[in-house]
Design a binder for these strands. Structure first.
Lengths: 342, 342
DNA sequence: TTGAAAGCGCTAACAC
DNA sequence: GTGTTAGCGCTTTCAA
C-alpha cells in the first residue's frame, strides 16, 4: 500500500537512515543522493506514517476538545464557531483536533478526561463552559496535564485561561435597560454551576444595586440555555403581578425563546416588554425584532485559547495566561425605546 | 511518566509479553500471574499507549471530518449537530473523531484530503455537502480510501452514502404553497455546484411544472446559505413587479434572512408574503412568525453516516449503501393561510 | 557521506 | 504457562 522509507531505501540502494535524513533535508547527505531519494519518494508517492512519527517523537500533535453538550439535539451555534476557531489555529501550527461530546459531569465525560490524562492520547486539551469546582480542571491540574480553559473557576487553582468578562458585559446590558427607564428587570439565568452564568448573574445584581433598584426573587428564573428553556422561564415571568418591564436572557437562545413566548401572548417585544440577550449569535440580528445583546467574538476566542494551549504544550509561558476580554453592547430593537418613569 | 508494559513486567518479574497477554485477558496466563499483573497495573495507573497500539495494529481508529465552511464566522447549526451525531456513534465503536475546517474547493481542503488518503492519518472519512463533480469524492474513489458521504454526486461514481431526498422534500413544500393558492413562487437557491441545492431546485421546478405553473427566471435568485445572503436575495425579489406571493429559502438560514428583509419593508410574513425554509434548524420554530420548513434529522443522519463508515472500514458491506431518507413537511405560521386565487 | 543498531510501546508467532 | 524474537515505521546516536 503506502510506500515506506524501506521501499525508497531499497529502490535507491541506500539505507533507511540515509533516506530519512535525505528527506528531512539534513546537510550531511550528498546532494546527488538526496536528489535521487527525493525523486524516488515522489515517484512512489511517499508520505511519512504519522503514527510512527508520533510514537518516535513521543507526542501526538493532537489537541482534544470535549464538548459538554446536554442533549443530542442541541443547536448552540457556539460550538461550531468555536471549533472553527480552534481548528484553524491548530491547523496553522500543524496540530490536529480531536473532538468528542459528553454530557457535563457525566461518567462518560470523566472517562474521556481520564483517558486524555493518561498520556498519549492528545498533547493538550481545551476546556469550555467551566463550572464551579470544576472536576475536569481539578483532574487536569492534579495530573499537570497541559490545557487551557475558556472560562474561570471558583476554586483557587491557577491555570491558563481565556475568558470574556461576563459580569462587565452584563453590567453594560442592565445599565442600558435602566437608562431606558426600566426598574423591574427579570433575568433568565443559566443553570447554576456554570461559571459564566454566575458572572452574568453577578453583573446583573451589581448593576441593579448600584442603581438603587431592588431585585425581587421571582425575577430570577433558571433556564437550561435552550430556546425552549427560555420560553418556559418566560411563561412564569409573564404570570407575575406586576410584570417585569424588561427581561434578560442568560444567553441569546433563551432570549429568543422568551421573545417567542411573549409574542404568543400577543405582546410587542420592545414595546410592551423589552428583551436582551447575551452572546450575539449570528442569528440575533435577524430576529424580529432584532435582539439587543452582548457581543462575544467566539471565533477569535477559540483561536486565542488554542494559541495559548500550543504555547503551554511547548513549555513556553503564555504572555498573558489570564486573558480577560471585555465584551461590547449591541443595541437593537428588542430593547425598545425609553419608557416613562414609573 | 506514564507507566509502560515494561515497568509492570519489571515489577512483577515476568516478561513484557506475559503482561501484555495478561492484561488482554488471554486464557493462557496463570490466574495467579494475571492477578499480580492486574494489581501492579492498577497500582502504577497503567493505561496503554494508544500510539504504539496504532502503529502495531496498522490502524488509527480515527475518523476524519473536514468541514467545508465558507468564512471563519459561520453560524450554520448543521455542523455542531452533525458532529454530535458522528462523534457519539464513533465513540460507541471506540473511534475518535478528527475535525478540521477548510473552505470548499480550496487548496487547503485538497491538501487535507490528500493527507488522509496517504494512509495512516485516519481510517476513514466522512464527506458532507457533496458537489457536482466532487473532487474530494473522485480522489477518495481513485485511492479506494474508505469514506461515506452525506449526499450524492452528479458523476457516475459508485460510493456509499446517506442522503435525504431533497427533491422530495422540496416537492412537499412547493405543493403546500400551491395548495394554499400561490402561483408566483420564488426560490432562493443555494450556490450552484452543491448537490443538495440542485435537488432542491429540481424539486421546485418539477412541482411547479406538475401543477402547470410557469417559473419566471427572475424568481430564482442565488444565495450563499447565510442569513445575509437570504436577505440580499430577498431584496431583489421585493423589487419585482408583480411580486412573488411566496418565497422559499434554499435553507432555513436564508429563509430567515428573507423574513428579516420582508419585515424591514413593513410587510407581514405569512400574510402579505409567504415564506418557507428547508432544514428545520432548532431555531426555526422560534422565529416570528415560526418558519414552515422541511425537517431533516441531522443528528440521526450523522449517526447513520458514521455507522456506515465503520462498516466500510471493517470491510463489511453496508446493508443499505445508498440510503435515501424522505424528509417531512413542518407547517408553521410563515407560510400563512389560503390566499384567494389570482 | 553513509550505515548499523537501538529504541519509541505494543502485539503476535513460535518456541520452550 | 511463559519467554524469546521479530516487527509495525520512523528517528537518532554512534561508528565506520
Amino acid at each position: 500500500m503506502a510506500a515506506t522509507l524501506k521501499d525508497i531505501a531499497r529502490k535507491v540502494g541506500v539505507s533507511v537512515t540515509t533516506v530519512s535524513r535525505g528527506l528531512a533535508g539534513y546537510s550531511d547527505v550528498a546532494a546527488e543522493t538526496r536528489d535521487r531519494i527525493m525523486a524516488v519518494a515522489a515517484e512512489l508517492g511517499y508520505s511519512p506514517n504519522v503514527t510512527a512519527q508520533r510514537l518516535q517523537k513521543q507526542r501526538t500533535d493532537m489537541l482534544g476538545f470535549i464538548m459538554p453538550t446536554f442533549g443530542p439535539r442541541f443547536s448552540d451555534p457556539f460550538f461550531s464557531e468555536f471549533i472553527a476557531g480552534i481548528g484553524n489555529e491548530a491547523a496553522a501550527h500543524n496540530y490536529d483536533l480531536l473532538v468528542s461530546t459528553h454530557a457535563p459531569d457525566s461518567e462518560g465525560e470523566r472517562n474521556a478526561y481520564l483517558r486524555a490524562v493518561k498520556k498519549g492520547w492528545v498533547d493538550g486539551l481545551i476546556v469550555v463552559r467551566t463550572r464551579e469546582d470544576d472536576a475536569r480542571i481539578q483532574l487536569l491540574c492534579e495530573h499537570q496535564f497541559p490545557f487551557v480553559a475558556f472560562g474561570r473557576t471558583s476554586d483557587a487553582l491557577d491555570f491558563p485561561y481565556v475568558d470574556e468578562d461576563s459580569a462587565a458585559g452584563m453590567r453594560l446590558l442592565v445599565q442600558h435597560f435602566i437608562d431606558l427607564g426600566h426598574e423591574r428587570i427579570a433575568f433568565i439565568s443559566p443553570p447554576s454551576g456554570l461559571m459564566f452564568g454566575r458572572y452574568r448573574l453577578q453583573g446583573f445584581y451589581e448593576t441593579m444595586q448600584a442603581n438603587g433598584l431592588a431585585v425581587q426573587p421571582e425575577w430570577i428564573v433558571l433556564g437550561d440555555m435552550t430556546q425552549r428553556g427560555g420560553a418556559e422561564a418566560m411563561e412564569s415571568l409573564l404570570a407575575l403581578q406586576p410584570r417585569p418591564t424588561a427581561v434578560i436572557g442568560g444567553n441569546d437562545l433563551m432570549a429568543i425563546g422568551a421573545i417567542n413566548r411573549i409574542q404568543q401572548e400577543g405582546l410587542q417585544v420592545g414595546q410592551d416588554i423589552a428583551v436582551g440577550g447575551f452572546d450575539d449569535i449570528p442569528l440575533a440580528a435577524y430576529m424580529s425584532p432584532p435582539l439587543t445583546t452582548i457581543h462575544q467574538p467566539i471565533y477569535e476566542i477559540g483561536k486565542a485559547t488554542c494559541a495559548m494551549l500550543i504555547e503551554v504544550i511547548n513549555g513556553r509561558v503564555p504572555q498573558n495566561p489570564h486573558t480577560l476580554l471585555t465584551p461590547t453592547l449591541i443595541v437593537r430593537a428588542s430593547s425598545g425605546k425609553t419608557i416613562p418613569q414609573t
